[in-house]
Design a protein around this nucleic acid. Structure first.
Length: 224
DNA sequence: CCAGACGTTGTT
DNA sequence: GTCTGG
DNA sequence: CCAGACGTTGTT
DNA sequence: GTCTGG
């Protein structure tokens, strides 16, 4: 599962990682505690097939939703079934994206309370979480673009804390996932699998991160 | 035909 | 929007 | 995901 | 307990 993550890297680093030539006109402050309903940084294809960086509201709001509130429960989609679920299948076929991250959190219940863990790539690099996006039109003609993060079974590195994890895609698969050439659903589905042992490392962090309002380096500090 | 659901997680 | 249940 | 709220009336 | 907000 993935209900909180980090993107501490700069926009320039993200653009470089995703091979995007021009930077957007907005900025991206380092984020240590990205939570549902907030804007995350995603990469998708423009109408003419170029990669662009966009900010999407985390929590997918289906186009038929009556209010945007529905989105706060659709923050994840199971990779095994998203292609057939009414809320996700259209987006699976036509609106796949990559969400930029450099860490994610999971919680483990203990006698003392909820202990958060930070998961990162073993080399501390950026990574891409497979996502699906939608455009929703409100009553006043306001458009909101939202996103859900796909999940897969836990990898050997992560299963001790939680049995699910975000679907992380290797760089070689970005073009296929984004649809830079026509790709069957089944081929996209096959890309969604847990990373091999040794890809990720984890460490417990301070419960400071538990509060969604908290932000900054204290979120990734060791427990006190 | 119309009405109502449409999702994940974790816990039991 | 699209499918399922009644 | 976790934390925090969970309500109405009338008046300003 | 359950829903909302971040």
């Amino acid at each position: 599962m993935c209900g909180r993550f980090t993107l501490r890297a700069t926009l320039a680093d993200v653009a470089d990682y995703f091979r995007i030539d021009h930077l957007p006109d907005w900025d991206w402050p380092a984020r240590f505690n990205l939570a549902p309903t907030q804007a995350v940084l995603a990469v998708r294809l423009t109408g003419d097939g170029r990669r662009e960086m966009v900010r999407l509201r985390w929590g997918l709001i289906p186009s038929w939703a009556k209010d945007l509130n529905i989105g706060s429960r659709l923050i994840n989609a199971r990779a095994e079934t998203a292609h057939e679920k009414p809320s996700f299948r259209t987006a699976f076929a036509r609106r796949r994206c990559l969400v930029a991250a450099d860490g994610y959190y999971e919680w483990k219940k203990t006698e003392a309370g909820k202990q958060p863990y930070l998961f990162e790539m073993s080399d501390r690099s950026l990574f891409a979480i497979a996502g699906l996006w939608e455009r929703w039109l409100g009553d006043e003609g306001d458009a909101i673009e939202s996103v859900t993060l796909l999940t897969v079974p836990a990898s050997p590195d992560t299963e001790a804390v939680h049995h699910r994890m975000p679907a992380i895609l290797p760089r070689e698969q970005f073009g296929t996932w984004l649809g830079e050439s026509p790709t069957a659903d089944s081929r996209c589905r096959a890309l969604l699998r847990p990373p091999s042992e040794g890809t990720l490392r984890m460490r417990p962090v301070s419960s400071f991160v538990n509060r969604p309002m908290h932000e900054g380096p204290q979120c990734v500090a060791p427990p006190r």
